[in-house]
Design a protein around this nucleic acid. Structure first.
Length: 886
DNA sequence: GTAATGGAC
DNA sequence: TGGTAGTCCATTACG
């Protein structure tokens, strides 16, 4: 059956405006009232599933009600501009919903609604009226129910005649009598002074209507009677004002408000404009939104999609000759496991798409040869990943020419959305569907039918093709040509080589360690229970917090968003209070080792070959460092002896070979000495002094032989602080001293190393002026928050300005060393292999007969990777496993 | 999916 | 003044 939903636009938007906190979109437009309105609207549409919908608005300020009573709605606060500006937004949004809007000069929204509700009743249809104004209750009937918003906007109370009877003891028509007697302050309707809801209801129980009350006023006693007698006219007028006029000359029919649902694309676009991302997600409009944009951007490029599955292989050779970009799509985060989906080869006019499963067919041979041909340049997105995926199909990718992901990373390593979809948008080159829109995400992931997938791959390949010249040009302009073409781009292949090689890990060693850890975990668990006097889940920060702070009454040091903090820093402070704390720390240490390093690494050892193959990512860290995933081999324990044992499992993959590890000595402080030009610091490194001892001497003003272990420890912390972008607060936390003392240290440090001080000041100033900082190799990082008025954000940006050139230059240097080592191994035809990089360390496996050579070559290459004003030093060590190479 | 925690440099 | 040491990744608990 037909059902109308009639919404009082002005009432709801007002409610929403005051119910929601102020909210603006990125262009500063207020949107809270529209958001509240929309939330309510969606809920009603969903619950009522109406066949007709209308939103009515008041038109202008003067209505027929003012004719008899000029003060009607007088004394009202002027609509705040924050709300006024939202009316056009709401009206636009309603259009996107395909919901009709009525307004008529001289009438209010409730008159329009009353008229339509009557129309609906007359035709035997039902209607739902939505408002924040209880006046509307007069419209309730067998066929009309009224929803009145309750606290907020999306919570509503449903009034039927029965509900009104239960709540007020009135029939709907008496609502106007109620208003006539009690008035309505918000509409400036006077009613009868001294009569509120209670009295009015009592009178109506007895007399039924305003007219009847006035007729029998002599039956009423005392002050009330006086009040009524003195305000009889006011009561009559008030009733009239409160009466909804149900004969508005609308000149419309019900068919004008018929509603058959909204158009996804239009609504998605409207939500995007308003930046209602949550609503967009809730309605699953993401794909529709992008589709709409993609369709509108389609003019940006025209190419013919040839899906070999449906159209055959003819023309493949021409396509390869003309190819300007290639896209290799795979599914799965870990490229060592990801499954190929398809390959798209694009030229200006055509895009050739081959499902990955056909890559092994004879027809695909030209494509495979092309991929392996070093003289056929390939441009793509994430060539590093592509190389690994293809390698597992026995295809050896050659001729890597340009990688838009890598180029975009160099242009802005903090790019918020480095996906192809995001980059295309970011560089103003139009729209393609996002992978998420095409595949879905998480459990909902599915590869769509071949036709849709071919289209998507073609769009991505074409996006690469169009983006390439722009990115190349920008690299040139920002002086990053060499960084890209001579370092990062070729390094990607070196990394892929290391990953394919993998490192042998002895599962037995890990299992034995795991057995020992397990024994000690059980031991420690019992000890913790014994200390507590009962059992609980030590691994639950929530339960642990309750035990420590509620039951054992230990002092609360720090809180998290959700409760007590129980991190190591807190526990260390609590150690003196209770024996349980030390046991918990030990438990934490052991379970970390067990789950992350024993169990975690065991899962990663490939059954064929007994190796672990990590995946280095070149486009993650904002400073230019690499990162390592699946698993992370850059955080294998070393500081604590128990954890360090894990390294015993990392062994050479050939019998008789040796693990050789070389690490830079103080590379970051040497870089600092170079870029700051500080004479004292340079001098210290030229003389190969122990830098922390030297720092202690200068900061404490003592002779070398007077530096004790504690002074050296503190000096070391100061040096760390300097590299990280120092603050007195941070240093005080680290050394457990007062802020004043920390500030004193820093002051002393800057006096001893004035060049460092000058660098820190000037790099921050430079960042403020340019908006970015750079490394020695012109790697760049933007720091937009360096001018922020918020102290914390600005301070963070300042520390980053100090740290990034140091950490980033160190990253540049080891990357150069990796390139050079790779070349050296190839040139000399060595069998030795580079296996791992851990920020300042390179790990190799070396056959016996190359050991003497490598132990000279590696530190030599590392220390000469880049010429600085101070020497670079790399220390080398060897052993039968990574633990022994220390 | 997010928060808390902790491993590395 | 106000309150974070810089960069990452993986795990567990929990809603």
């Amino acid at each position: 059956m037909d059902k109308l939903v009639l919404i009082d636009g002005n009432s709801i938007i007002n409610r929403a405006f005051y119910a929601l906190p102020p909210l603006t979109n990125s262009s500063g437009l207020h949107t809270n009232a529209v958001l509240g309105f929309t939330t309510m609207l969606l809920k009603v549409l969903e619950e009522e599933k109406p066949s007709h919908v209308l939103v009515a608005f008041d038109a202008g300020k003067i209505t027929f009600r003012h004719e008899g009573y000029a003060e009607y709605k007088g004394g009202r606060q002027k609509t705040p501009p924050e709300l006024s500006e939202q009316f056009p937004l709401l009206k636009e949004l309603l259009q996107a919903f395909s919901i009709p809007q009525f307004e008529l000069a001289g009438y209010e929204a409730d008159d329009i609604i009353g008229t339509l509700a009557k129309l609906a009743e007359d035709q035997g249809k039902s209607a739902i009226v939505v408002s924040g104004d209880k006046d509307m209750l007069q419209l309730a009937s067998d066929r009309v129910s009224v929803l009145i918003t309750r606290k907020g906007v999306s919570e509503v109370e449903r009034y039927t005649p029965q509900a009104i009877g239960e709540k007020y003891g009135l029939v709907p028509a008496q609502i106007i009598d109620l208003k006539g007697l009690m008035g309505d302050a918000s509409d400036n309707i006077p009613g009868v002074p001294g009569v509120g809801e209670k009295t009015a209801l009592k009178l109506l129980q007895e007399f039924g209507t305003v007219e009847n009350v006035l007729e029998h006023v002599e039956d009423i006693k005392g002050k009330l009677r006086e009040n009524i007698e003195a305000n009889m006219e006011s009561a009559r007028m008030s009733k009239q004002l409160a009466t909804i006029y149900r004969e508005v000359p609308l000149e419309r029919t019900l068919e004008d408000v018929a509603w058959s649902g909204y158009d996804n694309a239009a609504l998605a676009a409207a939500f995007r404009k308003l930046e209602f991302r949550n609503l967009s997600d809730r309605l699953n409009l993401g794909a529709a939104d992008e589709a709409a944009e993609a369709a509108s951007a389609e003019t940006a490029s025209h190419y013919e999609v040839i899906n070999v599955l449906t159209e055959g292989w003819a023309g493949l050779n021409d396509a390869l000759t003309a190819a300007e970009a290639v896209l290799v799509e795979s599914y799965g985060d870990n490229p060592h496991l990801a499954e190929g989906i398809g390959i798209a080869v694009v030229s200006e006019a055509k895009c050739y798409v081959v499902p990955y499963r056909l890559l092994a067919s004879t027809e695909a041979r030209p494509l495979v040869s092309w991929l392996e041909n070093a003289d056929a340049p390939k441009s793509s997105y994430d060539l590093h990943r592509v190389e690994l995926v293809l390698a597992r199909s026995g295809i050896s990718l050659k001729g890597q020419a340009f990688d838009v992901q890598l180029a975009a990373y160099l242009l802005d390593p903090t790019e918020a959305d480095p996906s192809l979809h995001g980059l295309l948008q970011r560089y103003g080159l139009g729209q393609i569907l996002s992978d998420e829109a095409v595949y879905g995400k998480g459990a909902k992931f599915r590869v769509p039918e071949d036709d849709a997938i071919a289209k998507h791959l073609a769009a991505k390949a074409d996006a690469v093709r169009r983006m390439m010249p722009l990115l190349a040009e920008q690299l040139e302009q920002l002086g990053m040509h060499r960084l890209y073409y001579e370092l990062e781009q070729p390094l990607s292949g070196v990394l892929a080589g290391m990953e394919k090689q993998g490192i042998s890990v002895n599962a037995e060693t890990l299992k034995e360690l795991g057995t020992e850890f397990q024994r000690r975990i059980e031991e420690t668990t019992s000890a913790v229970y014994e200390s507590a006097g009962f059992e609980f889940n030590i691994g639950s920060p929530k339960q642990l917090g309750e035990v420590l702070f509620d039951r054992l009454g230990l002092p609360v040091i720090k809180k998290t968003k959700t409760g007590y903090s129980t991190d190591a820093e807190v526990l260390e402070k609590l150690e003196p209070y209770h024996e349980i704390v030390r046991r918990i720390l030990h438990y934490r240490q052991l379970t970390k080792l067990q789950s992350t390093y024993i169990e975690g690494l065991l899962k990663e050892i490939r059954l064929d070959g007994g190796k672990i193959h990590t995946f280095y990512r070149q486009t993650i860290a904002a400073t230019g460092r690499l990162s390592s995933q699946f698993p992370n081999l850059q955080n294998i324990p070393i500081r604590m002896e128990e954890g360090r044992q894990i390294r015993k499992a990392f062994v050479p993959s050939e019998p008789g070979w040796t693990i050789l590890a070389a690490d830079y000595s103080q590379i970051e402080l040497r870089v600092l000495a170079h870029i700051s030009g500080d004479e004292g610091l340079k001098e210290a490194f030229l003389n190969e002094m122990d830098i922390h001892t030297k720092t202690a001497m200068d900061v404490f003003g003592v002779q070398p032989d007077q530096v004790d272990a504690n002074m050296r420890r503190q000096a070391k912390a100061v040096n760390f602080g300097i590299v990280y972008g120092i603050s007195d607060y941070g240093l005080s936390q680290n050394l457990n001293i007062t802020r004043r003392e920390a500030a004193e240290f820093i002051e002393q440090y800057f006096q001893a190393f004035p060049g460092v001080k000058r660098y820190m000041v000037s790099i921050v100033e430079q960042a403020r002026n340019d908006g970015y900082v750079t490394t020695l190799l012109e790697r760049r990082r933007y720091l937009p928050e360096i001018r922020h008025s918020n102290f914390n954000l600005r301070s963070f940006a300042e520390r980053t300005a100090m740290n990034t050139p140091i950490q980033g230059t160190a990253a540049d240097i080891i990357k150069l060393a990796m390139m050079r080592m790779n070349e050296a191994i190839l040139e000399r035809g060595l069998k030795s292999r580079m296996l791992l990089q851990v920020h300042d360390e390179l790990v190799f496996e070396v056959p016996e007969d190359e050991l003497d050579l490598m132990k000279r070559l590696v530190p030599d290459v590392m220390s000469t990777a880049l010429q600085l004003d101070v020497p670079l030093r790399a220390d080398v060590s060897m052993g039968s496993n990574w633990y022994e190479a220390k």
